[in-house]
């Protein structure tokens, strides 16, 4: 192994000067090595985030710095029917999309977790929806969902399954479903590839042992694969949930939150109020609302993972 050979010239070169000693100290070196990452995160994330949270407690507008208003924004939002609708929308959107992505992603991962001709190309295709810039794939869906020109409607009418037009983005529930479908399309690869990687860690000897015990395909999945896959599933689901709750582009391009706010999520509402409406304080408060919920979800899932 290449790595072993190069250790020979390294022998006895461990330096004894101050820098050398620091580099050999577990704690000092550790701190040194995380510093670049921490620096970037501190300057470009933590600091602006701190500013952002502070804004949530002020009545700042784009032009004016504003002053501290305590929990005023949060109280206002709790009484705001649009905001409450957005909480509902986001919950529904994230729950439905993540569950479907998980199921479909798992199914796809199970399908391609075997040897077959064209395996490489199929696995590459699996990733495609994730590669296209969302701003552009959203445009494709915007057109596919056009009430008059939808290619889905056209096909359904051609084969006689539909007669009139389908109002994909004009009916609140249909609009929600259409956006969830677009999100699922884009999100399947993340689950499929992640879970495929997880499936490959499951040793074949376990399946063989299960087969000897007379287990069918379903039992093999339920008693062997699933328990081993579970920790990974939790992690992938958590990451995906975060991304889905924070979704912005897809909604913004296809409906802008309409019809009648039925598809507004936290991100789009915050953007609309902070940037378009100019009320930065309130927009910041909307974003800040999400955070405790997400943190709680993450901590609970990791606590659960550790127990496993």
């Amino acid at each position: 192994m290449a790595g072993i050979e190069v250790t020979a010239p390294a022998r006895a070169t461990r330096p004894a000067d101050l820098i050398g000693r620091i580099l050999e100290n577990r704690h000092a070196l550790g701190v040194l090595m995380v510093t670049p990452a921490l620096l970037i995160l501190a300057i470009f994330l933590a600091y602006p985030f701190g500013l952002g949270v502070w804004l949530g407690f002020t009545n700042a507008t784009i032009g004016q710095a504003g002053h501290f208003v305590g929990l005023g924004n949060f109280r206002y939002l709790l009484g705001d029917s649009v905001f409450r609708l957005v909480v509902l929308n986001t919950t529904l959107y994230a729950a439905a999309a993540v569950v479907c992505k998980l199921l479909l992603g798992l199914l796809l991962a199970l399908l391609v977790n075997r040897e077959f001709r064209g395996k490489r190309i199929v696995r590459a295709i699996m990733l495609l929806p994730w590669i296209v810039p969302t701003s552009l794939s959203a445009l494709v869906f915007y057109w596919i969902y056009d009430p008059t020109f939808s290619v889905i409607t056209w096909t359904l009418r051609r084969i006689g399954l539909a007669h009139g037009f389908i109002n994909y983005l004009g009916d609140p529930n249909l609009a929600r479903a259409s956006l969830i479908a677009a999100n699922i399309w884009r999100g399947i690869p993340f689950f499929a590839i992640g879970l495929l990687a997880g499936l490959q860690t499951v040793s074949t000897t376990l399946y063989e042992a299960a087969e000897i015990d007379g287990a069918g395909p379903w039992q093999k999945f339920w008693f062997v694969t699933w328990p081993l896959l579970l920790p990974l599933t939790v992690v992938v689901t958590v990451f995906s949930t975060i991304m889905t709750v924070g979704d912005f582009q897809l909604i913004w391009i296809i409906t802008r939150g309409g019809p009648a706010n039925a598809t507004h999520l936290f991100g789009t509402l915050a953007y609309q109020r902070a940037i378009q409406g100019g009320f930065i304080g309130e927009g910041a408060a909307i974003s800040a609302f999400v955070l405790p919920v997400l943190v709680a979800a993450v901590l609970v899932s990791f606590h659960y993972l550790r127990r496993e």
């Binding site: 009430p147 037009f165 109002n167 983005l169």
Partner: peptide
């Protein structure tokens, strides 16, 4: 025409 409830700026051009 059905569907106007979801129309953004470009839809009517196309229709």
């Amino acid at each position: 025409i059905p569907g106007v409830a979801g129309w953004l700026d470009p839809n009517n051009n196309r229709a």
